[in-house]
Design a protein around this nucleic acid. Structure first.
Lengths: 137, 137
DNA sequence: TCATAAATTATAATAATTATAAAATAAGAA
DNA sequence: TTCTTATTTTATAATTATTATAATTTATGA
């Protein structure tokens, strides 16, 4: 899902720094569900000095502010999605890529309580072999 | 979901070792969705010499054989479920416990293809604050 | 311009998992 | 039962992702 809603750092109480602006620019409309590592290496091209801590810190603050989401789908690392609207993801166990699935599975997105537990997040994950990897035997 | 189906090591081409038997015994009917660490420390009581590699190796083989499932719900570690029948899980972001949810969300469990991708796994994850943690302010 | 809280960096530490190689063992054959 | 061999286990080191720490730098508002 492409989400190009601009994130206003100031409005979520964060200082505007060039590093953060670069991270936001990279995230905006990004549909690759990047990991911290891929964000770091991309940003490094423009900011050779940026540190991993900055990437993780910024991502944590953005999650806290509800501006991005973290996905629990890649067993190896954290993956981030700038699109916070609920939608299904497909994880390819061959290449590790994550694809957005726009098909509506009619999930109970408004459920607030189940078995006495308070529900804050609902995510449907599909896993298998993606379109591209299926071609390669 | 309690699954007490006995796992026959021999039938899945694995040698019967005391360590593996202990791991299987611990897994059978276990509804706590243990991590490798919790399995290791539990087994260590009976087998003080067991190594982490054995735990991970055994779990990998059991997953390969389709005898247990791995959950993508705990952002910090791998969690395992001896019950392979599809069902929903709830992860408590406060205590880290995972609960089985028996409510039927009518998931498309038989879907084999979507957007050209081959679907092998469908999992619905709920996250929030569990029953017990809600009581404690 | 200044003061200050916040952010960034370099670095070290931690936690989970995987790899390696030597020693031990299960299991089938003799 | 003993032997043989492939498998398994163990000890250990290595790797990977992430988090913590503390010193330095910087954004921001006075």
């Amino acid at each position: 899902m492409k989400d190009t809603t601009p994130i206003q750092l100031k409005e979520i109480g964060l200082k505007i720094t060039p590093q953060r602006q670069a991270i936001l620019k990279l995230l905006k409309g990004n549909e690759t569900h990047p990991s911290a590592e891929s964000i770091y290496s991309e940003i490094s091209k423009k900011f050779p000095g940026i540190s991993f801590a900055t990437v993780y810190n910024t991502l944590s603050k953005l999650i806290e502010a509800g501006e991005i989401r973290e996905l629990d789908i890649d067993p190896n690392k954290r993956r981030f999605d700038p699109c916070v609207a609920p939608h299904t993801h497909f994880y390819c166990q061959a290449c590790g890529n994550i694809f957005d699935i726009s098909h509506d599975f009619h999930l109970p997105l408004t459920i607030k309580r189940i078995d006495g537990h308070q529900v804050d997040v609902v995510q449907l994950n599909l896993k298998g072999v993606c379109k591209n990897c299926r071609k390669i035997p």
